[in-house]
């Protein structure tokens, strides 16, 4: 079986880009089609979920999960991996923690408990589904980040549509580190 290689260029930079903007790491590596596929799937899921929850389901608050598990925003652990689109939540929580007013009109700032209850009453299951969409989007981006860092898991046979660059400088065999 032939071993097609994928030119991963700088894998660490590609992984960072893939985290910041889903698909960007692959586009940097010249894997344009894959980059677009990841961007559509991951960003699509994230923004559809965000719209379902009227923009109030992505937020972070600094609580100890062991002391206050009910208040711990578990979904954000997944949402964080979508990268730049979810970072305003972290920024807003840091501002609040250090006593500053929220910026960006309070976008992704932690909503009050009353606001969350009202949202739950008005939208019902859509709040949970939106949270799941945004969280799964982040978890899927972990796969994409790993793909940008280490190439695809399986060594496919060479095919004309794969952007394989055989053993060029920085080219790492698909499916593992060199």
């Amino acid at each position: 079986m032939t071993e097609p290689s994928v030119n991963l260029r700088n894998p660490a930079l590609a992984a960072l880009l893939a985290w910041l903007i889903p698909g960007a790491g692959h586009i940097y590596q010249g894997r344009i089609g894959k980059g677009i596929l990841y961007a559509i799937c991951i960003l699509g899921l994230f923004f559809i979920g965000l719209i379902m929850g009227e923009g109030k389901i992505v937020y972070w608050r600094w609580v100890n999960p062991l002391q206050n598990p009910e208040k711990f925003p578990l979904y954000y652990l997944g949402q964080f991996f979508v990268g730049l689109p979810s970072l305003p939540a972290l920024l807003q929580s840091l501002l609040e923690r250090y006593g500053h007013a929220p910026i960006l009109g309070g976008f992704m700032a932690e909503p009050s408990q009353n606001a969350l209850n009202a949202l739950q009453n008005r939208l019902g299951k859509l709040v949970e589904i939106g949270s799941i969409y945004t969280c799964v989007a982040g978890l899927l981006n972990i796969l994409a980040i790993y793909d940008a860092f280490d190439g695809p898991a399986y060594q496919d046979e060479t095919s004309p549509d794969a952007p394989a660059v055989r053993a060029s400088a920085g080219g790492i065999p698909a499916g593992g580190s060199a």
């Binding site: 097609p4 596929l37 559809i48 799941i132 695809p152 399986y154 095919s159 549509d161 698909a174």
Partner: peptide, 23 residues
């Protein structure tokens, strides 16, 4: 609403496994 989620999961998972579009 499960349908777009399943489609996205299967596309991203498969894309992380293979490099060939057919696969």
């Amino acid at each position: 609403l499960i349908l777009p989620l399943v489609i996205a999961i299967s596309l991203v998972y498969s894309a992380s496994r293979h490099e060939s579009w057919r696969r």
